[in-house]
Design a protein around this nucleic acid. Structure first.
Length: 255
DNA sequence: ATGACTCCCAGTGGGAGA
């Protein structure tokens, strides 16, 4: 079984690339972030024609998430129950005996800003909810754009990024608190090439220079950890014409 | 270097992203 997460930075723009990627990488499920579409504009027909069922939850201009899967998902949840939020950032569903949660974490803009405070509160609410989800669903995957580079080795220039958004001690502590509910970073279960990133700035020839951050993650529950066979970043879509600034992350689970 | 690019909604510019 293969799962993926990809911040597409506008599904309206990236739909052809998504469909091509799914044809080349027929994963069992994929979580999408930054669809930037109201629900009435979601391209459900095109996605169904490509062989995927879809659940979606969006809004105009910003945010928006979706969960695509080969089979039907059950018990779909949109956003964090009990956490009032105008922003469409979470979609969850159960595929077989796997609980899948796709999330688009707030950017946070700058340490000390209102958006930064919102980011931290949002992560705390997510953590509390994921803890309860884990109790009900031991086989759980939390994947998406976390907007956090967990360690310095996830940053192309840790000195320049020190204390900057995505790299602050507070964000990293919140990431560790999330792991502490019983999750593990699937990417770090394996030896990985140095300078592995999932996002590269559109500016500065950042992709060509491989100047990026690893901010998109797949976290698996302790119960799933023994079944993780591989976790990789697919840089190919970042080389396309009009790419998203993020690359997909793919995880393979054994039986 | 308070830059750079891309997307969106706007409307011939500006906010946000990361």
């Amino acid at each position: 079984m293969k799962l993926a997460t990809w911040n597409v930075n506008s599904l309206a723009v990236r739909l052809p690339q998504l469909l091509a990627w799914l044809q080349a990488n027929p994963v069992d499920a994929i979580a999408l972030q930054e669809t930037k579409l109201t629900d009435d504009k979601f391209p459900a027909a095109e996605i169904e024609a490509a062989g995927y069922r879809a659940q979606w939850f969006g809004q105009r201009t910003y945010n928006g998430v979706a969960l695509l899967s080969r089979g039907d998902v059950a018990d779909v949840v949109r956003n964090i129950p009990g956490h009032d939020d105008e922003q469409a950032r979470v979609i969850a569903g159960t595929l077989g005996d796997l609980r899948l949660i796709g999330a688009y974490f707030p950017n946070g803009q700058a340490p000390g800003s209102d958006k930064f405070a919102y980011k931290l509160r949002w992560i705390e609410a997510l953590r509390d909810w994921v803890r309860s989800e884990l109790a009900a669903h031991p086989r759980l995957v939390l994947m998406g754009d976390f907007n956090i580079a967990p360690e310095d080795r996830d940053v192309h220039d840790p000195v320049a990024w020190a204390g900057q958004i995505h790299c602050t001690d507070e964000e990293r502590a919140h990431f560790r608190d999330l792991l502490a509910v019983g999750l593990v970073d699937a990417f770090r279960l394996f030896d990985q090439p140095p300078k592995s990133w999932t996002w590269w700035d559109y500016r500065n020839l950042a992709f060509r220079r491989n100047q990026g951050l690893r901010i998109d993650h797949v976290l698996v529950s302790e119960a799933l950890k023994p079944q993780v066979l591989a976790c990789t970043i697919d840089k190919a879509p970042r080389k396309a014409e009009r790419p998203s600034d993020h690359a997909p992350v793919v995880v393979e689970l054994g039986d």
